[in-house]
Amino acid sequence: MGSKAIIRVKDLRAGYGEDIILDHVSFNVYEGEVFVILGGSGCGKSTLLKAIIGLIEPRSGKITIDGDEVSVDDDTTLQKILRKVGVLYQGAALFGSMTIAENVALPIREYTSLPKESIDVLVKMKLGLVNLEGYENYLPSELSGGMKKRAGLARAMALNPKILFFDEPSAGLDPVTSAELDDLILYLNRSLGTTMVIVTHELQSIFAVAQRIIMLDKRAKGIIAEGNPKYLRDHSQNQFVKQFFNRQADEKGVVSRGSQ
């Protein structure tokens, strides 16, 4: 296990308008690890992801990626950082006016000097990895939700970035495809050493891929548990963590979800 912290989040506070969504959040992600962010719906997982990659400006706190501080104002550093990351958005965010192949080819064409035919081969390889061969000429609107997700994944890993961020990669995928995606994640992690930061709710895939997790909570506005998922499942004292891993509803009622 690599020991260098590739992402450092220190005392982060983030929010929208008046609302503070996250407060006093600190954690590290180490090079080459599969790191999973968990938490109930609406607790700020996407917000955390957006803060890390510099899409929203934190209220306070410090985030560094690979030694460079993420700052919305410092454009050159941000560009340098962004070259090292790939992001799969919750809604896939494919460009609707381009075919799937063009979507994947876009970053490759921009940042490498490869000839067109080679890019075509690469795009086919990438789409093959996510089981989308044969769909090169489809428009995003002609794909199903899960297929869009996979195409978004192919685009995120187009340049084999050092760090991949996934916002709910397996939402909308069938169990078989979802398991294949887990394999792909593990495989990319193993063969290319890619660091993965994944937001997901799929218990099975958490246990399959995650080396370390953090769990966020809406009421605590921060981290309520950190560590190995299997260990937390069996040993955590926190009620919400237990419920989460054992897939139980809150005893008090369906609606009130939160930690004690």
Binding site: E117, D120, V121, V123, L129, N137
Partner: peptide, 15 residues
């Protein structure tokens, strides 16, 4: 995994 043996550079994407 990338099917290197059958990978042919001419495998371009037909429009």
């Amino acid at each position: 995994i990338l099917h290197f043996d059958s990978l042919d550079e001419k495998m371009s994407i037909e429009k």
